[in-house]
Amino acid sequence: MAIDPQFIDVIPPSEMRTCLPRTDRLGASWPIYEDQVDTIPRSEWPALAAQQDRSLQPLVRKIKDQGQEGSCASNACSGAAEAITVKQFGIEAWIELSAMSLYKRVASSAQSGSTINDNIREISTRGILPTDTPQNKARFAHTHPNTGFGRSLPTDWEVTANRFRILEWFDVASMDGFVSAILRGAPVFYGRAGHAIFAVSVKTENGIWYLKYANSWGEWGEDGFGYDSESFVRGSIQSYGAVAPRVVSTWDDWLIPREMAA
């Protein structure tokens, strides 16, 4: 099915351009994907991208909605973390995560915005809280809504947040690395045009390569998803940052069973 042009290379309104340019040099803080993993030659992209089952889209259980706040980078980061959780442990292990519980620690106001790097640094060290759904409230001591910058984090929130962390990830430096990471099964969250999202698949149409991403604008686009062309993204990868997470924490013991004696 052809991509709807209105959802390609969408430039957000100025008030929603809240993904801030990175403040550190590429590779200064974390390993660069292209240095650690062989990128896949472009000649192999078409055949791999044509395998529909390869898409990471089924790992996205819910499209996030950042409302009118500047938490796009936190939503992209937490959305990617949720996707990796489902990939590792299964749909039953999915926990909706509160982007706001992350954003409050990397931003100065509801509209200040945040960087990709600050989000990955914070979610990897102190973690993130589950959203305050009735199910999560019943399961966890600390939860937080997905929006509402003015609301304080609960006392001792770190205890629960520490269970939900991204443990391993790479900085992605190029479009070749970006596509390779996705084709090797890692979602990539990134910023471009002042907005952050996370990519789940690649697609080619009329000779142009596109990234399909999950947005955080609720009911928008193609069931919450949009597309970025390679030319739209290429220049932004290094200025905003792109991160490919691979491993998230085992947030509860029951996720991995222990063998019983024979």
Binding site: Q36, V37, D53, R54, S55, P58, E168
Partner: peptide, 18 residues
């Protein structure tokens, strides 16, 4: 080691997952 995931293994992981 997930860093070493090949495209073929990545595909199989998704096929098993869904």
């Amino acid at each position: 080691e997930s860093q070493q995931d090949s495209p073929a293994l990545a595909l199989q992981i998704m096929e098993l997952r869904v």
